[in-house]
């Protein structure tokens, strides 16, 4: 495991724990973020059964996606400043991208779906070079479209693509830079929430409104 990958597998769990502690405690502002961040750092570095937390989490999760890290930074920053860097449209883009990616990727990776559909293999450009154009161009076009529309989730996708070019993760597969199971689960929950909210508002005869999330 390279140094960059090792640091990444420490930083992302720390961000995740910081956000969880902020959310559970209801704290906001710089002081709250500092306290929760410090507690999260202590939890991450504490020698659980003789080893720090990343030693255990890496066993199952050594490739956290860039969008997951990005939305955690946005969420923590929102708690600190009281204003979200993401509009509801940005969040919607994140959840829809993550949910669509999860539907395209995970059933195939479990051996389900059409026999010849191997979505994950497209993430190695040197394996099925011609077919992998669909994935690389697809992510690039989605990122470009979002950036053109001033959707800030596009920045996270751009960072994921740049990260893949640098190759800082343990994985050499593009999918692992743009999607992971944690982000996928959050995205599916986010899309379901969007769907329920739309259904609820339609039943009440109201149109869904664009709303800033804090």
């Amino acid at each position: 495991m390279s140094g960059g990958a090792a640091v990444w597998t420490v930083v992302v769990p720390w961000l995740l724990l910081t956000w969880v502690f902020l959310w559970v405690s209801g704290r906001r502002g710089w002081w709250g973020c500092f306290v929760c961040g410090a507690v999260a750092a202590a939890v991450v570095m504490f020698p659980w059964l003789g080893h720090p937390l990343p030693f255990w989490t890496r066993a199952l999760m050594a490739n956290f996606s860039v969008p997951l890290a990005g939305v955690l930074v946005i969420a923590v920053a929102g708690r600190v400043s009281g204003k979200s860097l993401f509009t509801s449209a940005d969040w919607n883009a994140a959840w829809i991208f993550g949910a669509a990616g999860a539907v395209a990727l995970y059933p195939s990776a479990l051996g389900l779906g059409p026999r010849n559909l191997d979505a994950y293999a497209l993430g190695w450009p040197w394996l099925f070079w011609g077919q992998s154009f669909v994935l690389f161009a697809g992510v690039a076009v989605v990122a470009a479209f979002l950036l053109w529309r001033c959707n800030r989730f596009g920045i996270l996708l751009l960072l994921a693509l740049l990260g893949y070019s640098v190759g800082f993760q343990e994985s050499e597969n593009l999918w692992d830079y743009v999607l992971d199971p944690v982000f996928a689960a959050a995205a599916i929950a986010g899309v379901l929430r969007l769907g329920f909210r739309g259904l609820f508002l339609r039943n009440r005869g109201e149109a869904p409104r664009q709303k800033r999330l804090s």
Partner: peptide, 24 residues
């Protein structure tokens, strides 16, 4: 916006294009 969108397209397609010889 144009620069960022172009950067995204380049960042996505560059690793794919650079793998062409290995891909063949």
């Amino acid at each position: 916006r144009m620069v960022l969108a172009g950067l995204a397209l380049a960042a996505g397609l560059a690793p794919w294009w650079s793998a062409r010889e290995e891909g063949w």
